[in-house]
Nucleic acid binder design. Sequence first.
DNA 1: TATGAATGAGTTTTCATTCAT
DNA 2: GATGAATGAAAACTCATTCAT
Lengths: 201, 201, 201, 201
Amino acid sequence: MVRKLLKEKKREEIVKVASRLFSERGFYNTTIPDIAEAVGMSVGNFYNYFESKEDLAKYIMQYSSSILGEEIRKISQMDVSTKEKVFLIVRRFIEIAQERPELIDYFLRIFLSNREVFSEGCEGFLCVGEVVTELMLFLEEGARKGDFRQQDFFPAFVTIMGPLGGLVFLKGEGILPKNPIEYANEIGENIWRALKSDEKV
Amino acid sequence: MVRKLLKEKKREEIVKVASRLFSERGFYNTTIPDIAEAVGMSVGNFYNYFESKEDLAKYIMQYSSSILGEEIRKISQMDVSTKEKVFLIVRRFIEIAQERPELIDYFLRIFLSNREVFSEGCEGFLCVGEVVTELMLFLEEGARKGDFRQQDFFPAFVTIMGPLGGLVFLKGEGILPKNPIEYANEIGENIWRALKSDEKV
Amino acid sequence: MVRKLLKEKKREEIVKVASRLFSERGFYNTTIPDIAEAVGMSVGNFYNYFESKEDLAKYIMQYSSSILGEEIRKISQMDVSTKEKVFLIVRRFIEIAQERPELIDYFLRIFLSNREVFSEGCEGFLCVGEVVTELMLFLEEGARKGDFRQQDFFPAFVTIMGPLGGLVFLKGEGILPKNPIEYANEIGENIWRALKSDEKV
Amino acid sequence: MVRKLLKEKKREEIVKVASRLFSERGFYNTTIPDIAEAVGMSVGNFYNYFESKEDLAKYIMQYSSSILGEEIRKISQMDVSTKEKVFLIVRRFIEIAQERPELIDYFLRIFLSNREVFSEGCEGFLCVGEVVTELMLFLEEGARKGDFRQQDFFPAFVTIMGPLGGLVFLKGEGILPKNPIEYANEIGENIWRALKSDEKV
DNA sequence: TATGAATGAGTTTTCATTCAT
DNA sequence: GATGAATGAAAACTCATTCAT
């Protein structure tokens, strides 16, 4: 019992350290010894927790996705207007990118660009399922209420996630002149205008 | 003279093959022998054309960016409405992603995710300078004409490039149910609505 | 007392499982965790019963040899003709190879081919002493009685054990078209003819 | 042209060194760096000649088998009596075991005992095909001439190869009191008596 | 006795780059 | 310019053994 829990704790620790290293240096420039050292464990012991480097990468992806998905769901279920929710999602996404940059950066850097790592058992959307699911529900509800124009899921999806990902990317590049959160309102406004139905303000 | 030209031709050939391989397999999963073989030259000879693998990667990045920038500039200078231009840019971007997928995929996969490769001499925006410059000019002109709302460059930039990058990503994942070009209008509409000033239709 | 016995029981259990695994997968492809798991004990506990992997290997060798030696002795002491004994030994050897394949396979695969494992304390014939001793006695008695031609021990030894080992090897390769026991008579006949003195039939 | 030949020469060199090391130390106790160093080349370069350690092992097996098969064929085609041929094969086998011990030892130690290495593409008899084929032809011809008793191939095969393998094994164990060749006649006699038809002397 | 997490040296294999030809 | 064999550092992963509990 206790052992199981301890093992789970250790896994989380590895995940935290590794997602940071991966998003800082890239997947292929982070070695298992790097991770082990940063966690303070031996290389061999690492393999008691994850079967392989790929296994770890997939686990992190799903872990990140479930956290992000959870955040979106929380907002989605609030008792506020759809417009308000759009702004909240944008703001929350940017906050997380600052509080736990590895979560989002990992997605951008590792998942987006090292797809070969995720083949088999965690391809494409499977890996980020929770984020997608929650956004889909949010978009559908907004459309049902008449707040969003009727449109295909995919254009709407990229209209939300694209600008957010882009902003985080620019943040990572270190070229944003202001604190990212200061762009939250403008981006929220853009996304809302992009999706809202014509009657809405 | 002639030699210079021949050398340039060979470089282009390498660039074409390499950008395809890089975007198919990822930067770290494409070896110099792979590239040399695909081009039909020897490994040693490759190094007569590019100093290193990184050197090649940077060159490709700038090459792609100059082509994309050129396409944006062409549209930007057309004698059509700003709204029309937004739709044209979206459409052209998606077309290029289909005609020469390596150009866009390379950007998404290699640049976005393997930033460590591009440090020194080609950091961040430097590498994609032309696309950024052209979009900046386009946005400024649109705002000056009163077609776009006044806003910071960066939110506007990600509002255009984010959805486009996102769509290409989804295309790469093979999960789009329709041909990407069929989403062009919806995405163009979203972007236009996101950016246009209130008087515009 | 009781403790000693329990310990011996557990050792036998380990020996049984390990000899099977070793002969199935080879010495170097069988890990201590593999053995421990198959026995249903922990890795650490394994080391309460055997000092090392090599220690275990040597123990198994001697264990197998003592069982085989015992079988030969039984036959050797029967009240039947020398010719009959040759046929019985052949038959018994093949039977054991079928009933307890690990015993013989272990000898063929592990001892024959991983001699380096057995250096120090169990070299060569020391390890298989009992089989050798019993065969030596059997051959001497046969010669004394005038049933076998007079000859050096070693040629005679390999003339008996060689074909038997060869047959088991072929069985392990899965290429024998018939059940091994069906070759017993032919092989017995060959061995008997090879060794018998000229007066015998 | 020349390059191809040089490459083949180097492969042979590797094969010679590696088969010696393998048969001295065992397959799993010989590392690629060991082999590379003994050949006088770098580790990386080794992989320009063989795809993997297994690949090398299989190659050596077939190489050895073709040499042994060739020797058997030479004797098989001589214009001497079948009895004489049996004695010549025994003698030649023992000679080779002394002149080029790695050839035979390799078979005994590596092939016999590390079968897992040879799975896929070189299983069992496939790998030693030439020896088997030549012996089969020899046995058939002898039976046709009426020199050998009629019997199944497999018992006859192990009756020849078993004692020979056994002798080499004992030689490797360092326990033979005499030079192996001195046992040639006795073993030849045993094998001949084992197989010959009753009319023969 | 029993457990299994922890260790770390050791293994195979890869690959950017060089350089003699 | 062109070739491809050669280099060697570095990577992922393994596993016998130990030891705190």
